[in-house]
Design a protein around this nucleic acid. Structure first.
Lengths: 326, 326
DNA sequence: TTGTAGGCGTTATCAC
DNA sequence: GTGATAACGCCTACAA
């Protein structure tokens, strides 16, 4: 237990008010006393007691970020930018993962709502929106990347439907129509969007949709691996695979390699920018602009935190882009 | 602002003490009153005010984890286990990154020491140990993975020297002596250990050490790429590369591939377990047991948090192992 | 500019 | 079991 303001007051002989004024910096204090207080702080090893300050001011100067898993490269990357941007606003960031578990999601949400002034979260599709709504009464909540439909809530999302549609359309125009699609979790918002984009492209080109070319996954490497195998059983003539997420892309790569199809198949993976030049397989990737997502989410959150709710609920849509491996 | 205990007291007509007793669960309360309070909680939307509780109890039931970067797969993986294990002790986890910046490290350390009961951190080599010592007066600090030498501090470390020595020795016995070594940051503890292991192996086998086979890196992919190129200029006959960290391994893979040397060179990468089966290059990896590291770190921290300092400072050493790609 | 006093929401210590 | 009351450390009027 380190010293308190009271200790400083006793030590210097000044009043508590003067000490507080000096430390908060909001009310000027004579230089002489300032110096003496400064010295006392060093002497007694004083540090502000955040709990007390928060209790009094009811403000944490801190925003929570809640993501499904620490294995998600993309979200961690976004978080990194969120942290930087928040700092320019004088806010700290607290990251928490709910480990892909719904109950844990609720728990962490409650937890963060006790420790922060607002929460940026990536929800699961199966969360009970009423629980979120309940928390939302206490602190502003902005969803990013994923969302749930039932909720009235601020959102920052990527236009998954459009980018997928465009990419698949491009492939079709190149005469490649046997395109496997390994999506994320079945009910996830992003999955639905991407699936729609995939289907749109085929419809647009008057090609019937082959359900056996599609499958879902868990974002784990293994499920990418298995997904590819499953699709290939029904479609030995498959030429392209579109796969969502870094780790599932790794899985597909491994499966393609294990099947000795490195030169027959090309892959387009979400967020696979890191590995496109390390493998022999042709690999393009969808780039989701981390920084812009972070920027928009923080901006919106800062407005909410400062009581500006005039356009609530608002949804910001951000464009992704296709990039090819070197 | 949601309801408080005082509101509950007013609403139910019971005293503050009874409300508190019921909510903390530490003192039994008659069932009838319990039910009534439960109902009042729902009615008024009461939630504990953590700040007030912390102020009073001086305990956060929360441990902070401070890592250099959210890009570090390995540390994030360890954090995931830390979180799980902490939960079994009834503690939460807060993760923070200092973005490879020393000043930021200090800042986050101070920050966490205000929000948690103890800090598990991965320090930079150049941190001023006095600042850590200062924080350590307030909360227990356990270093893991990395450490600084000057500090009197608890540590949970991997035996990098031994594993590297063994792996290099094995290669030498296979007649492969042109082994490149791309280490991490120059002054880092882990780097020094690994370098020593590398050198030991050569000494042990009576082979002179070739400095041009060694270089440092920043753990970024690019620095792995450049590191390989640099080493190869002086050593066109290089047959093996030992490289530290997931991303730098990716860089080496890309460089080897760019040079068309997929079949001449084999690579051993730290923590590269994810990609070993996706590339055509022979790739082994060092596996650092995440779970065990997390377990040891948490165990030690829990003892410190509970005031058991009898073996302070203590250092736990954990063994890594070599695994080969599928 | 400086000091005093009251209260933020909780827990802990008493009596009853 | 229950109720009153006093802290915990800080901030903020308001008064001096």
């Amino acid at each position: 237990m380190s010293g308190t303001m009271k200790d400083l007051a006793k030590y210097t002989g000044y009043s508590l008010g003067t000490i507080s004024n000096y430390i908060s910096g909001k009310v000027p204090v004579s230089e002489q006393k300032g110096n003496r207080i400064e010295q006392a702080i060093k002497e007694l090893g004083y540090t502000v007691n955040m709990a007390a300050r928060v209790l009094k001011t009811n403000s944490f100067q801190c925003i929570g970020v809640l993501i499904p898993s620490f294995s998600n490269q993309f979200l961690l990357q976004v978080s990194k930018y969120i942290e930087r941007i928040l700092r320019t606003y004088g806010y700290d960031m607290l990251v928490t993962s709910y480990n892909d578990d719904t109950e844990n999601f609720y728990k962490q949400l409650r937890n963060l709502s006790q420790k922060t002034d607002g929460i940026l979260c990536v929800p699961r599709p199966d969360v009970d929106y009423r629980i979120i709504a309940e928390e939302q009464k206490k602190v502003p909540i902005v969803m990013f990347d994923e969302t749930t439909n039932e909720m009235v809530c601020d959102r920052v999302l990527v236009d998954n439907e459009k980018i997928v549609e465009n990419v698949i359309d491009m492939l079709i125009h190149q005469g490649r129509t046997k395109i496997g699609f390994i999506a994320g979790k079945k009910r996830a918002y992003t999955t639905l969007q991407r699936k729609r984009g995939y289907e749109n492209a085929f419809k647009r080109n008057g090609i019937p949709i082959n359900e056996t070319l599609m499958t879902y996954g868990t974002y784990e490497k293994k499920s990418g691996y298995l997904g590819f195998q499953k699709i290939r059983i029904s479609n030995p003539d498959i030429t392209d695979v579109f796969v969502v997420g870094y780790r599932m892309t790794l899985g597909v790569l491994a499966a393609v390699k294990a099947a000795g199809l490195e030169h027959e198949i090309s892959i387009i993976g979400y967020d696979a920018y890191d590995i496109s030049d390390t493998v022999d397989i042709k690999l393009g990737y969808i780039y989701q602009p981390y920084q812009e997502i972070a920027q928009m989410a923080v901006k919106l959150m800062m407005r909410r935190v400062n009581g500006d709710d005039k356009d609530f609920p608002t949804t910001v849509i951000i464009n992704a882009e296709l990039r090819m491996g070197s």
